[in-house]
Computed example of a mutant assay.
Amino acid sequence: MGLINLGHDGHRFFNILPDDWQDVIESVWDDYKDNASIYVFKEALDITAGGIVFRAAPPNMTDFEVEEWQKYVDANFHYIGFLFVDPKYRGQSLGSKWLSDLKVQFPDQSYWLTIEEEGLRTFYEKNGFRCVSKSKDEDNPEWILIYQPEKSN
């Protein structure tokens, strides 16, 4: 199973997302699809896991993200959003495999992302990301994590 680039055809991927995520991305996809790519894993005809890599600002940014995003775009970081594993395929480390395959396919690319659940921090740190910022909003905390490939000599 390898990473498949769906390109602009997001609707097959959107169908596996939770309804609230679908609401965020489907209505604005046409505005973002030229600066984004959807990468998925498939088993037979089923999309088992996937995510979107944005080469510009992602949709639905919070105030915290708005304060931070430009420096990452200026430094050629891409944003990882909507990383999701279909519940039928959980427990197979597909989220980690997705991140690993993305890093292998694009070995020189740096990434940034935002999490709203602190529990996800361990998952991303296990996958080579590091936390660089936390929002000041105690009621709705967010964290920005980045991944930068090691420079080879």
Rank of each mutant, 00 (worst) to 15 (best):
G2H: 04
I4K: 01
N5M: 03
L6E: 04
G7C: 04
D9L: 06
D9N: 11
H11R: 13
H11Y: 10
H11I: 02
L17F: 04
Q22D: 00
Q22I: 03
S27H: 08
V28I: 07
V28N: 08
W29Y: 07
D30A: 12
D31L: 10
Y32R: 05
K33W: 07
K33M: 14
D34C: 03
N35M: 07
A36P: 00
A36I: 09
A36L: 03
Y39N: 02
V40S: 03
V40L: 05
F41H: 12
K42Y: 01
K42H: 05
K42A: 05
K42L: 03
L45Y: 08
L45M: 09
L45D: 10
D46S: 10
I47N: 07
I47R: 08
T48G: 04
G50D: 01
G50L: 02
I52E: 08
I52K: 10
V53L: 05
R55Y: 06
R55L: 10
A57I: 11
P58G: 02
P58D: 02
P58Y: 03
N60A: 15
T62Y: 08
D63R: 13
E67A: 15
E68H: 14
K71W: 07
Y72R: 13
Y72H: 15
V73C: 06
D74G: 04
D74K: 12
A75C: 09
H78K: 10
Y79E: 00
I80C: 02
I80G: 01
G81Q: 04
F82Y: 10
L83R: 05
V85C: 02
K88D: 03
Y89F: 14
Y89V: 03
R90G: 01
G91S: 06
Q92C: 04
S93C: 08
S93Q: 12
L94S: 11
S96L: 02
W98R: 09
S100K: 15
K103T: 09
Q105N: 14
F106K: 15
F106S: 14
P107I: 12
D108S: 15
T114W: 02
I115Q: 05
E116V: 12
E118N: 07
G119N: 11
L120V: 08
T122K: 14
F123K: 11
Y124P: 00
E125Q: 13
E125D: 04
K126P: 00
N127C: 14
G128I: 06
F129W: 03
R130E: 09
R130H: 13
R130N: 11
C131G: 07
V132S: 07
V132N: 06
S133E: 06
K134S: 08
K136I: 09
K136S: 10
D139F: 04
W143E: 06
I144E: 02
Q148K: 14
E150P: 09
N153E: 09
